[in-house]
């Protein structure tokens, strides 16, 4: 029973939501909306589990004095502080201030680091010396130059070349990948519906 009941529930819910997507019927529409709203509420409860897990992981790190434990203290304090401010003073605008002047700038700074890592990845590709890596690097350089450099004179050829690369070979490759991905996503969903995969057990 412990195995069959979740499987039956998953099968029924999956079928109703799937049929609701294809068919127009007021009863199915209402049932489908109800089930989707239920999923959203369940996901909100999962957030509580996430919070509990975060506290547990970092409390353990601090207690065992594992490497990097001082950072765990900062994480614990900011999580609990954010929670307290959110619960006690959610109308005060303190959380808005924190988001605007602390979190967003921190996120933007971290995002800026990605540009340097992309350069590092390009150098790594060049050093690997493989054919695929070299082609990727050359094509990337052409597309970048065709986008950023001022056009005219000898560089005039870069813009049409960039347009051709983006709209013909790159688009064809992306469509090929997306076709395979779509089939993979369908197969993954159908495996759950057909009871071949049971990730909820």
């Amino acid at each position: 029973m412990r195995r069959i009941l979740p499987a039956l529930v998953a099968l029924l819910v999956g079928l109703v939501v799937l049929l609701d997507y294809f068919l127009e019927n007021p009863v199915l529409d209402a049932l489908g909306s109800f089930l989707l709203e239920g999923a959203i509420i369940l996901a909100a409860f999962a957030l509580l589990l996430g919070l509990w897990n975060l506290l547990l992981v970092h409390e353990r790190k601090v207690r065992r004095r594992e490497r990097g434990w001082p950072a765990s203290i900062v994480i614990l304090l900011s999580t609990l502080g954010g929670l307290a401010v959110g619960l006690a003073g959610w109308r005060s605008g303190a959380l808005d201030w924190f988001y605007r002047y602390v979190l967003f700038p921190l996120e933007a700074s971290t995002g800026a680091l990605l540009a340097f890592v992309v350069v590092s990845a390009a150098v790594r590709l060049w050093r690997l010396g493989s054919l695929e890596g070299t082609v990727m690097l050359v094509v990337g350089a052409i597309v970048l130059a065709g986008t950023l450099l001022p056009q005219g004179g000898a560089l005039g050829v870069l813009t049409p070349l960039r347009e051709w690369i983006v709209s013909v070979p790159a688009l064809a490759a992306v469509r090929g990948i997306l076709l395979g991905v779509a089939l993979g996503i369908m197969a993954t969903g159908l495996r759950v519906l057909l009871w071949i995969d049971r990730p909820y057990e």
Partner: peptide, 14 residues
């Protein structure tokens, strides 16, 4: 592709 030794490309993930 650039950062890992063995990338799984697109549908290979599934």
């Amino acid at each position: 592709f650039a950062m890992t030794e063995a990338p799984l490309l697109g549908e290979e993930v599934y």
